[in-house]
């Protein structure tokens, strides 16, 4: 029943709440601009870190998808056994692709790697010392060790190799970057909430007399709260949208510089991140604004 009364009041007075919320914004223009600017600044910093994290994630995925392990097979096994081993490897969970490399192909590759010194490998065709192998790709770099151990157990597999050292080190670095990035985002998120709720508090404080008068002539707490809530949401939302716009500009500029100069690693294209960031920032901005105004007005309702 209480819920019903509540909704009833919202709809009956919606026009008043909206009008009041927006006229508060325009009457206190300086405060409005200050609030929006601080929301924007906080969320811009938040956004920059978010963009860095997104790119580290994408770099991680790129690196992970390039990682492969090689299962060398014994020489003295039949073709049937070879395909049997291939099937067994495919059946291991986490394995995404398995490609066979014959002795001839291995030699071919070896020669390519030697380049203009390929004459060193000449004459090896008759008695090819290179083993046949399976090149295995896995879903997640973290699985490499386990999968390689499993493949070792298969009959006919001589040896498994993946760049253990490199992979382990890379995984360690990526982990640290993620943890540091996420903690910075969390800290900035909290800082944004504090900034915003403080700014709204200033606005509420400036109008404490008004709130007081409203209480005296019989306004309910929710009647007083709604315009401030709307005001807070609008502030948060506008600040968030502006920060997204700025972020897009800055990121576009970074894309130009980095993608032209670095070949190793490409930044995520703009289209790929704008949608998500726009959605999440709008939500976060609105929630922060609502929470901020909710907290700030509480103290002034006790009359």
């Amino acid at each position: 029943m209480k819920q019903g009364v509540f909704m009833d009041m919202l709809f009956r007075n919606l026009k008043y709440f909206l009008k009041e919320g927006f006229s508060n914004l325009s009457r206190n223009r300086l405060m409005t601009i200050a609030s929006i600017t601080s929301v924007m600044a906080a969320m811009l910093i938040l956004g920059l870190f978010l963009v860095i994290i997104l790119n580290v994630n994408s770099l991680t995925n790129q690196v992970e998808s390039q990682l492969e392990l090689k299962a060398f097979l014994k020489d003295n096994i039949s073709e049937q056994e070879v395909s049997q081993i291939g099937n067994e490897i495919k059946a291991i969970p986490g394995v995404t692709s398995v490609v066979f490399e014959s002795k001839e192909e291995a030699l071919q590759k070896f020669k390519q790697q030697l380049g203009d010194k390929s004459y060193l490998a000449e004459g090896l065709e008759e008695d090819n010392p290179l083993p046949q192998s399976y090149i295995v790709k896995v879903k997640d770099a973290g699985l490499m060790k386990d999968i390689s151990n499993e493949i070792k157990q298969i009959n006919g597999v001589d040896k498994v190799s993946y760049g253990q050292d490199v992979v382990d080190k890379l995984l360690g670095i990526i982990k640290i970057v993620r943890i540091v990035g996420l903690s910075i985002i969390l800290i900035l998120f909290i800082i944004s909430i504090v900034i915003i709720s403080n700014t709204i508090k200033l606005g509420v404080f400036a109008r404490r007399r008004e709130i007081n008068i409203m209480k005296y002539i019989g306004a309910t707490d929710w009647f007083i709260r709604w315009p401030f809530l709307i005001e807070g949401v609008v502030l948060g939302l506008v600040g968030a949208l502006l920060s997204v716009a700025l972020l897009v500009l800055i990121y576009g500029y970074m894309l130009d510089i980095i993608n032209n100069k670095l070949i190793v690693f490409q930044l995520l294209p703009l289209e790929k991140i704008v949608g998500d960031i726009l959605l999440y920032f709008s939500l976060i901005g609105a929630i922060i604004g609502a929470l901020g105004s909710g907290f700030s007005i509480k103290r002034f309702l006790n009359v």
Binding site: R27, E210, N212, I213, K215, Y216, T220
Partner: peptide
């Protein structure tokens, strides 16, 4: 506490300092 607004609506109040909304 939540019934107080309805009590105040049954009374009109006038103060020394008028307490009008300036805006």
């Amino acid at each position: 506490k939540r019934e107080i607004p309805y009590l105040r609506r049954s009374m009109g109040v006038v103060f020394q300092d008028f307490r009008l909304l300036p805006n």
